[in-house]
Amino acid sequence: MSNLNLFRIDDMPFRLKEEHDFEWLSNLGKVFCVFDEQDSGNICFGVEKDGIKKFVKYAGAKTIAFSGQTEDAIATLRKSVTLYQNINHPHLVTLLDHFETEKGYALVFEWFEGECLHSHWAFPPPQKYQHPDSPYYRFKKLPLESRLKSFECILEFHVHVEKMSYVAVDFYDGSILYDFNRHITKICDIDLYQKKPYTNTMGRLWGSSRFMSPEEFELGARIDSKTNVFNMGAIAFSLFGGELDRSFSKWDAGEALYKVAQKAVKKDRNLRYSTVEELYMDWVGLVG
C-alpha cells in the first residue's frame, strides 16, 4: 500500500483508499487505536476523553478491504442501530450514541477491554491457531471451565435473540470479544442480524463459511432458529474442538457435550434441535 494512502489522527496511523474528513472525531476524544482492515466497509476507532474510553464504528470512508459500495456500508450501519436497541442484552456491547456526519454515519459504543477471538488482520490462519499471542490460541489454552462459561454466554445471548424474533446472520468467532483479565465475554457486530421470518435472497449469505449451515448457501431457503442452532454448534466445535475437523479426537469437552454439538450441526436441518433454547437447555443441563 502506497504511503499516499497512509493517514494519521492524533499520531495514530491508518490506511484508506482515499482521504476522508474525520474532523468530527475530535469532539469524541483523542484517538488511541484504529481498526482499518475490516471487510465490512467500516473503520473503527478507540477514543478517550476525560479518562473515559469509547469505541467508534464509522461507515463513509473508502476502506482498504471493502469491495462494495460506500453507500451500502452506510445504509447497513444506520439500520444496525435498531438491532442494537431492540436486542439490547448484558452480553452485547453497549450502544451509547449514533449520528450522521457530512459524509457518513457513526455509532459510539461503550469501550470493552476484550480481544476479538478472530483478529484476522493480526493473526491470519494458520497463525490464528499457532501463534502464542493470538487471542484464539490463548482462549483455547484456557481451562475448560472458563471456555464453558464463555460459550454459555454466547448461547444465552442467542436464546434472547431468538425470543426477540431475530435470526443471527454473519455470527462467527470474529463477533466474540473476550476479556482475558476479567474472563468476560461480549458479542459485537450484530449488524446483519435479521427479523424473522427471513428468507435467503442471496444464495451465499454473509458470513464465514466455517460456521454457516447448508441453507445459508441456498437461494430461497428459510433462515430460522434451526439455522442458528447449526451456527451455535459450529461455534462449539471452534471453542472446544477442531473447528471444521469435528472428530471426537479433537474435542476436549467430554462425550456428552460432543453429542449435543454433533446434533446441532446436522446437515439435515430436521435432525437438529428446533431452537437455540432447546440446545441451551441440553448443554447447561450436562455442564451442571
Rank of each mutant, 00 (worst) to 15 (best):
P143V: 04
S165F: 14
Q127I: 12
Q130F: 08
L142Y: 06
H120D: 07
P143Y: 05
C188K: 11
S119N: 08
E145S: 13
K186T: 05
H160G: 07
C116A: 02
F123S: 01
R182G: 04
C188I: 15
S175F: 10
Q130R: 09
H118L: 11
P135R: 09
F151K: 00
H160Q: 07
A122L: 15
Y172M: 07
H158K: 03
F139W: 05
K149F: 13
F123P: 00
I184A: 03
P143F: 04
L177A: 00
A168Y: 06
V167S: 06
L148F: 11
K140T: 04
K149S: 12
I187H: 01
Y172Q: 09
K149A: 14
R182Y: 12
G174T: 07
K140M: 08
A122S: 10
P124Q: 03
D179Y: 14
L117Q: 01
S165Y: 12
K140A: 05
Q127N: 09
F157D: 03
S119K: 08
W121G: 00
C188P: 00
T185L: 14
V161P: 02
I176P: 02
E156N: 13
P126C: 06
Q127D: 12
Y178G: 00
P143M: 05
L144Y: 07
F171A: 10
Q127V: 10
Y129F: 15
F139T: 00
H158G: 01
H160Y: 10
L144Q: 07
L148Q: 11
F139I: 00
S146K: 13
D173L: 15
K141S: 10
V169I: 15
S134H: 01
F151A: 00
S146V: 15
Y166L: 12
V161R: 01
F180L: 02
F123G: 01
V169A: 06
Y178R: 01
Y136R: 02
L155Q: 06
K141N: 13
E156G: 07
K141D: 07
D179M: 14
L144W: 10
F171P: 00
T185N: 01
P126Y: 10
S165Q: 13
F171D: 05
F151E: 00
V167P: 08
H183V: 13
P126D: 05
C116R: 04
L148Y: 07
R182W: 13
E145Y: 13
D170P: 09
P132D: 09
D179C: 12
H158N: 11
E145G: 02
S146A: 13
E145I: 13
H158Y: 06
E156K: 12
E162S: 12
I184K: 09
Y172V: 05
F139S: 02
E156H: 05
P132K: 11
C116W: 03
I154A: 02
Q130L: 15
I187S: 03
N181C: 08
V159I: 08
Y136N: 04
S150A: 15
P143C: 06
H183A: 14
C153M: 07
H160C: 10
Y172N: 15
E152D: 06
P126R: 07
R147L: 03
F151S: 01
H160E: 08
P132F: 04
E152L: 11
S146H: 12
K163T: 08
P126V: 11
D133P: 02
F151G: 02
S175E: 04
S146I: 15
K186N: 06
A122Q: 13
D179S: 07
Y129D: 11
P125I: 01
V159W: 05
P132G: 04
F157M: 11
P135C: 05
I176R: 01
D179W: 15
Y136D: 05
